[in-house]
Structure formats: C-alpha cells, structure tokens
C-alpha cells in the first residue's frame, strides 16, 4: 500500500520535527518553566506521531498492540510528569523568568 507508506512517512517526519524542536527549545529557552513548555508538549505530540507512523507499517497485531500500549503510556504519563515537575519546582520557589531578565 503506497498510500499507507506515504502517510506513515508524513507522520514520522512531523514527529521527528517536533521532538528535535523540543530538544532545541530545551537548550534555547531562558528558564525552567519555559523549557518545560517546550518539552512537555512536543514530547507527547512527537512520540504520538512517530508511534502512529510505525503502527501503519506493522504487519502483526502483536506488534500493533504493543505500540498502542507504549503510545497510551507515554501520552498518559507525559503530562503527569510535566505537571508534577512544574508543581515541585514551584513549591521549591524556582524563580519565574520575566521578559528582559538575563537567562538562567
């Protein structure tokens, strides 16, 4: 199925773009909270797209079920871990970067 191949390639490319952007944001953004914005979202979106892209290429249902379980797991735990981290950092008084301040 050439159509599935193309769709899968598009999904994989989009997912890859997202995860690389997330990593670049992790390095470029000025403080912890903005970085967690960059990674939290692109992580879930990128992982989801890449796993869906793989799912379209699998032939056995065992592999498909496993991919779906990984997908479900990453999508559920990703935002949870993000929130817990942000919450813990806030409680510890990690300062919020404002426009014009030096990056840290």
């Amino acid at each position: 199925m050439i159509l599935l191949e193309i769709l899968s390639a598009v999904l994989l490319a989009a997912g890859t773009l997202f995860i690389v952007s997330g990593a670049v944001g992790l390095l470029r953004f000025p403080d912890f909270y903005t970085r967690i914005h960059a990674t939290g979202i692109t992580d879930s979106a990128g992982a989801g797209l890449i796993l869906l892209g793989l799912l379209l290429r699998t032939t056995t249902w065992e592999a498909g079920v496993r991919l779906l379980i990984i997908l479900l797991f990453l999508v559920v735990t990703g935002p949870t871990a993000t929130h817990l981290l942000a919450h813990a950092a806030r409680r510890d008084g990690v300062p919020v970067w404002r426009k014009g301040h030096p990056r840290r």
Binding site: I19, G22, A23, L26, F32, R35, I36, T39, D43, G46, A47, I50, L51, L54, R57, T58, T60, E62, A63, R66, L67, I70, L74, G78, A81, L85, A88, A89, D92, V94
Partner: peptide
C-alpha cells in the same frame, strides 16, 4: 539546578523508548 536536570533526563527517557521502538521495527525484532 536540579529541576532542569530532571526535566532533561525525563525527556531522555521518553526518547529512549522511541529509539527502542523504532530500532525494533528497523531490525525486524518486534
């Protein structure tokens, strides 16, 4: 600070999962 490090390591972990899944497809090892 520790939170930046934990954040980075968490991300590293999810990328490892993706890497393992993709390499499983590449090498035909479900």
């Amino acid at each position: 600070g520790r939170y930046n490090r934990i954040l980075a390591i968490n991300m590293f972990g999810t990328k490892t999962v993706l890497f393992v899944a993709v390499s499983g497809y590449l090498f035909g090892r479900p």
